[in-house]
Computed example of a mutant assay.
Amino acid sequence: MVETRWSLVSRRRIAALAGGLALAGLMLGPAAAAEGRLRIAKQFGVVYLLLNVIEDQKLVEKHGKAAGLDIAVEYVQLSGGSAVNDALLSGSIDVGGAGVGPLFTIWDRTRGRQGVRGIASLGNFPYYLVSNRPAVKSIADLTEADRVAVPAVGVSVQSRILQWASAKLWGDKEFAKLDRISVAVPHPEATAAIIKGGTEITAHFGNPPFQDQELAENPNAHVVLSSYDVQGGPASSTVLYGTERFYRDSPKTYAAFLDALDEAAKFVTENPEKAADIYIKASNSRIDRDLLLKVIRNPQVSFKVEPQNTLGLGQFMHRVGAIKTEPKALTDYFFDSPRTAAGS
């Protein structure tokens, strides 16, 4: 059964929430970062499991107390990197969770101003482009009759990886070739469309567990493309990021957050069954528990805060003109931290 059934009303509510957050920030001005307060935006899927764990076990609060600080933590559910970036720039949140593609976009646009950079990875996960049309064996087989669902057209990490794959196949000038048949649909709704069939959506570039549900529940569903194939191996596609102000003015809160994420990563790795139960509870999910455990235990998945293999996407985005500044090292677009220093 699909994890969540989304309706048009659901999408409108998310749009209204994101718009409200941005409007509030514009009216009041960006809120100053403050020690002892942490507002986090998350999205959908197992890729956000570390956030589910730190919320369930109050790990930020735990590590804050160890540092002599009481931290009030709030979580906001959004869909799409654009909504997350809007909320972050409005000052409505302190930390955004989204794909590494949106991170490069906001990093490039805020250099010398808000100074947004990465905080941590949420782990390595292969993202699959899944199609329910048997004739689609590769992206070269997609036609004007197909519609590819992504979280945000042109800017989400799925969309950026699809552009990168297009550039490899057709050349850099054609990197956006498949944007015109892409549509912005939240993962739960896109999954329902792939499983049911008979809609305009014939492909979905998703993330776990949605892609796994599609493959398990529709015999015609198959993998057309893996993000790892495009990125050249295991990679951190989903990350957390914040502003220079948060990093500079809330050092204890920042450190407690990283410590909490690191503890959560170890917990998930060592306790996959407990982690699965936390995810099901947090997302009010009806996903098959065995399927969820299969996702968490997938040998291609690793839960860790250290980013891996992210630089290549940023350099591709610069090469095709999607961002103005070329990232040359992790420290260009990630804040300095012993937790992430060995990343790539």
Rank of each mutant, 00 (worst) to 15 (best):
Y128H: 13
Y128A: 12
L129R: 00
L129M: 03
V130C: 03
V130P: 02
S131F: 03
N132S: 07
N132A: 03
R133Y: 03
R133D: 14
A135K: 12
V136P: 06
K137T: 02
K137D: 09
S138N: 01
S138I: 01
I139C: 05
L142P: 04
L142M: 12
L142V: 10
T143M: 03
T143Y: 07
T143K: 05
T143L: 02
E144K: 11
A145I: 07
R147S: 12
V148S: 06
V148K: 00
A149N: 00
A149M: 01
V150I: 08
V150F: 09
P151C: 08
A152K: 05
V153C: 01
G154D: 04
G154R: 06
V155F: 14
S156M: 02
V157Q: 04
Q158C: 13
Q158A: 11
S159C: 05
S159Y: 01
R160E: 15
R160C: 15
I161N: 01
I161Q: 04
I161F: 06
L162F: 10
L162D: 03
L162H: 07
Q163N: 10
Q163F: 14
A165V: 03
S166F: 10
S166C: 15
S166D: 14
A167H: 09
A167C: 04
A167I: 08
K168W: 09
L169T: 14
W170K: 09
W170V: 13
W170T: 08
G171L: 11
G171E: 10
G171Q: 13
D172Y: 12
K173C: 14
K173S: 15
E174C: 14
F175Q: 02
F175Y: 13
A176Y: 15
A176Q: 11
A176D: 15
K177S: 13
K177G: 07
K177V: 13
L178I: 02
L178V: 13
R180I: 12
R180F: 14
R180N: 12
I181F: 12
I181D: 08
I181M: 12
I181H: 05
S182Q: 13
V183A: 06
V183R: 00
V183H: 03
V185Q: 08
V185Y: 11
V185G: 06
P186W: 06
P186G: 02
P186A: 05
P186K: 02
H187R: 04
H187M: 10
H187P: 09
P188W: 07
P188I: 06
P188E: 11
P188N: 11
E189L: 05
A190V: 00
A190T: 04
A190M: 02
A190N: 01
A192R: 12
A193D: 13
I194R: 00
I194P: 07
I194Q: 11
I195R: 12
K196Y: 07
K196L: 11
K196Q: 14
K196S: 14
G197C: 10
G198K: 09
E200C: 07
E200K: 11
